[in-house]
Design a protein around this nucleic acid. Sequence first.
RNA 1: CGGGGUGUGGCGCAGUCUGGCAGCGCACUUGCUUUGGGAGCAAGAUGUCGGAGGUUCAAAUCCUCUCACCCCGACCA
Length: 508
Amino acid sequence: MSAKKFQNAIAPTRQEDYPEWYQQVIKAADMAEMSSVRGCMVIKPWGYGIWEKIQRGMDDLIKETGHENAYFPLFIPLSFMELEAGHVEGFAKECAIVTHHRLIEKDGHLVPTGELEEPLIVRPTSETIIGRSFAKWIQSYRDLPLLINQWANVVRWEMRPRIFLRTTEFLWQEGHTAHSTEKEAMEETLMILDKVYRTFVEETLAIPVIVGEKTPAERFPGAVNTYCLEAMMQDRKALQAGTSHYLGQNFSRAFEIQFSNQAGEQELAYTTSWGVSSRLVGALVMVHSDDDGLRLPPKIAPKQVVIIPMLNKPGEEEAIMAYSNAVADDIRKQSWAGAPVSVLVDKRDMRPIDKKWQWVKRGAPIRLEIGARDMEANAVFMGRRDRSLKAAESVSRDQVADLVVSSLTEIQNNYFALAKMLLDEHTHSDIDSLAAFEKFFTPENSEKPEIHGGFVRTKYCGNPECEEKAAALKVTIRCLPIDQSGSEGKCVICGGSAKTDAVWAKAY
RNA sequence: CGGGGUGUGGCGCAGUCUGGCAGCGCACUUGCUUUGGGAGCAAGAUGUCGGAGGUUCAAAUCCUCUCACCCCGACCA
């Protein structure tokens, strides 16, 4: 294969075919692949390493805000789903159902037998089964608040799976809490949204978000209010990066989550639920990556520094490896973002140039190439993933550890700044008529739509009909931002008087 | 569930119209050369051509049935 064939490591580029580019980045980074089970993915070590970093960081925040982890069953009795009307409607169409518990051999094939008296559904979310437990655990106001989180897999039989973004089975955390007052439950709902989700997504994943409330059309089935984080991908479409629900007394009524208050009266508890999923990995890909593959913010990279020994000539190996390991140890002594810098010395039996490209495609923030020449000069050759490949340069050995630390901070900040620039540049507040709105969201090439559109932040009258009208353009209200301006204006769709700010976009 | 498409070594595909030895590129293995910027040459290994049935001297190719997957809609963390 000749070098000229590669202008970029990933084909097609983002401009050429964004959805295909997305899949190629994941493949080239060796993160995950679709499995032989419909809609289900295999998460490979590099992709799972990213998820583990997400879990660790998020879990710390969840615990710092007073929650404890627990675990509930994968299966939910079918009858539980019937108890909350809105909930059934939302999830009934996408459930996996277990109806048998045994196999027998018949004509050389295994067929299910032993039909269950009551079918079990594989959890699409756990409000119902956790609600039943909460009802048992809560007797008195002294048992409240009850603050529980679960790390789990869930199954939703979606029509069109897309790797990491919408798979049949996915990984997530789901928080479930119960409170004695509406006020406290609402505070919890919003606290999680800001202190846990927004903080983590912006500061660790380097993804800027718009925080807001969903309209009734986009609300979680069974919730009173649903709040969310919305992020902009590089094709300017929105991706929901986290969600927090105020459930009011809907689930406590259905599952009899009652407590005696201080006056000795029975009251229904107020509950919340909130979650982020492995979809965040897809968001990382679509926000930060470029036409050479994945780019990982250092705080989420499973390895922050990769050392590639240039083992080209026989006889040099031992000395270069010793030098490389010594450099690695120096860097490991450095602390960054509250933890030792993680370093991998890639000593695999591969051509160094192939290793280098592999680490570029996997998005390692910093590459250090070490060969005989560097060793003689008491130096290393350092490349940063946020800069062009040709911008790599020689750095003296005694400066490298400090430079790595300052570079990690710079890379983390650069990725956030770039993503923020994209979000700001393509968020428009000056679209004030239906004609302008339609023009903005209509691609020039309808056969093969180019990257177009973005977020429109404008007034909305609150009429669901206006929302439906936008849906014809595949545009939905992503959220009603928390930071409302309070000003009065005209609804962008119907022109009627409107006070509410809304963010409109095409979404994943 | 509607409309369109595809199933051929690990991956990507040609071959199907007009039946006649199962092919190509990449990746993989081995050897030699090369070696700080996605190397070259040579040899090698890898296949129930999605499945079942039929037509035929002969089927990847034709016919019937079937399964799976992909794209466009409805659904969605």
